[in-house]
Amino acid sequence: MSLFNVFNVAGSAMAAQSQRLNVVASNIANAESTDGPDGKPYRAQQVEFMAASMGSKSSTGVKVNQVIEDTSPAKKIYNPSHPKADEKGYVEMPNVNVVDEMVNMLSASRSYQTNVDIMNAAKSMLTKTLSIGQ
């Protein structure tokens, strides 16, 4: 029954989008973290989506292939009173672009909502199907 596969497909997309939202939350939370476990400033992370087959030809789900580290250079701000400031008074800040992350967050939440709508539509179609002949 193809319609049950819609649940798998939309479910995989919801899982992937919520992982993306998770990464965005980490990035925004750490936008000011100048120190990490390795002693270096936090580096922004991004998820990479990949199409994943769900067992039938017409259904393709999504999965998070990997979480990659943003390789853009760290921002430097002038703040001589900061404990991590170098001899010229500059502090290395995380390479998190908060505006980008906000856009990413909105996009993830819209995609999540769309997939919830898909699931609801599939559910109402199945309910209709169950009512055949009644």
């Binding site: 596969n5 497909v9 997309a13 993306r20 017409s58 789900g61 999504v62 769309t114 179609m125």
Partner: peptide
């Protein structure tokens, strides 16, 4: 329906 759901699920997949 399954096909369209797959397309929508992969709207952000490179």
């Amino acid at each position: 329906q399954e096909l369209i759901a797959s397309n929508i699920a992969n709207a952000d997949t490179p």
